[in-house]
Design a protein around this nucleic acid. Sequence first.
DNA 1: TCAAAATGTTAGACTAATATAACTTTTTAA
DNA 2: TTAAAAAGTTATATTAGTCTAACATTTTGA
Lengths: 137, 137
Amino acid sequence: MENNTDKKLTESLENYLETIAMLKRENKIARVKDISKELDVKNSSVNIALNVLADKGLVIHEKYGYVDLTDEGQKIADDIQHKEDVLFKFFTEILGVEKETALKDACRMEHTISDETLAKLIFYIGKIDREKFKKKK
Amino acid sequence: MENNTDKKLTESLENYLETIAMLKRENKIARVKDISKELDVKNSSVNIALNVLADKGLVIHEKYGYVDLTDEGQKIADDIQHKEDVLFKFFTEILGVEKETALKDACRMEHTISDETLAKLIFYIGKIDREKFKKKK
DNA sequence: TCAAAATGTTAGACTAATATAACTTTTTAA
DNA sequence: TTAAAAAGTTATATTAGTCTAACATTTTGA
């Protein structure tokens, strides 16, 4: 096993990684039932996804045990979370979108925004922040 | 037939509607092979999608004939195209993203952006445009 | 401490979106 | 004007992601 070298992930698989990272952050550990509760899917679906992710070398999952991320899986999860954070900040602080809507939108768009657009968005937010700071003084 | 009242569309089905609208705009008519060429799928895939869309009352497709949109299908296509245009304008004119990247990103995000965020984005672009216009004078 | 409850896993089925291959219909051009 | 080419359709298969139901393992508490 552990031989699928293709690291291209679907939106669904990215969501599993992101959720596992979040659970580890909040609870120290991630369990199948917590993942299924968080993503509103059944345990069986989680199991199948974990097998796929383990095969890609992104999670570690011993039978009946906790779920963990490999360094590579953690890196991908952090990357997606970062995209979500940037989008959320832009939507709420610059556009003035309601938090709930902003989060929903960020959670969808984090899977499709390109590195280039993300970088430009980060730069833009920084510029606006600096302008606001100047005005305050 | 024509009985599936569920109008919730997948990203794939939205892309078919959008492509049909574009072909009609550019060539007056839309044919199966033009759709398949544009979306880089096979004719058989187009046929299946057209059956689903026809069943939802969004396209008209007589066997071996041209493909057309119903008023409702056209409305949805216009709506998606509008989202794409807004996102593209924001990415290129405000963030300074390369056109090719901006188009790719807009074509993915047009399926997920909420009405609220879209409205706020349109308002924001308008505000920036007005500021630019003032400066020029 | 051990039976019940909770949790996790596996097998089998379904849906959506695609493909290939075989077939049908329409169009074209010699 | 008809045979070949192009376009369109249908049948069947595959992949990804989900589900339910049956089964296995682990945890809990009387």
